[in-house]
Amino acid sequence: MSAGRPSAANKKYADWAWGYFFVAPTVIGLIILNIYPIFITLIMSFSKSAQFGKFKVSGPENYIKLLSDPEVGAAIRNTLVFTLTSVPVGIVISLVLAALMCQKIRGVGTYRVIYFMPVIAAPAAVAMVWRLMYNTDYGVLNQVLRAMGFQGISWLSDSRYAMMSVVITAIWGGLGQQIIILIGAITNVSHSYYEAADIDGASSARKLWSITVPLVSPSIFFLLITGLIGALKQFDIVYMFYGKRTAPGLGDTRTLIHKYYVEAFDVLDKTYASALVMVAFLIILVFTVIQFIGQKKWVYYDD
């Protein structure tokens, strides 16, 4: 590559400089917007709150308070239940739909558009619309149930259904993006595999499980990682559905980040909120590490 160019040493230096120049915007952004705040948050979590974002370093009181706060345990449990149901179920549904939308059927473009629609809407707007649909007295879901002769249910306020309602909304809101990514991956799978399977008489389900899934596993892995991280940070749907404190059903759906938000911006106890968000950070870290170790076993990179 470098043959015929002057002064290899100079050239090397210039390459380095340009390299740093090109990564600088990202690296500087990362330091200012991510890394610096992480350290400040860590320090704040060991501090005592003063007003207007000020704080005094004191000790681990916030973590002690956290252990005795019953809402924290419930929030961690809710967050895990939400994540471990919404992400896997969402990916399975997306995979099946993506596979269907890669078939040669009439109007496939229309289906793709329809499924992508929720991605365009702001998450808060999605939650608002679902909140109206779930309304016990006037919601369209209960009207349909009643028309069919069933009793309406309290989708949001009944502790048996509250989490399910949040999960359904989250899955619906996430489908579009997952489907688009999976369609891209499935389209890239070589047709020769399917032809060979056809000759061996494999069923559609068998082809999906034995050919498509392994070959799109890098994409599934990508969706799983981003999905889990996103789900562990769930806030918007719960907040739009339940507000801050008094709504029935909030106890069954309050997530760690929702609890963090209320402590930081309603109670204005920024240091306790920092401790909560450090816990969330640790949980996300653990999930990510497990996945990166696990991926060696089941992700198939087609080089």
Partner: peptide, 9 residues
Amino acid sequence: PPMSTYSES
């Protein structure tokens, strides 16, 4: 009315 009514509307 139940609190669900007041929190949903």
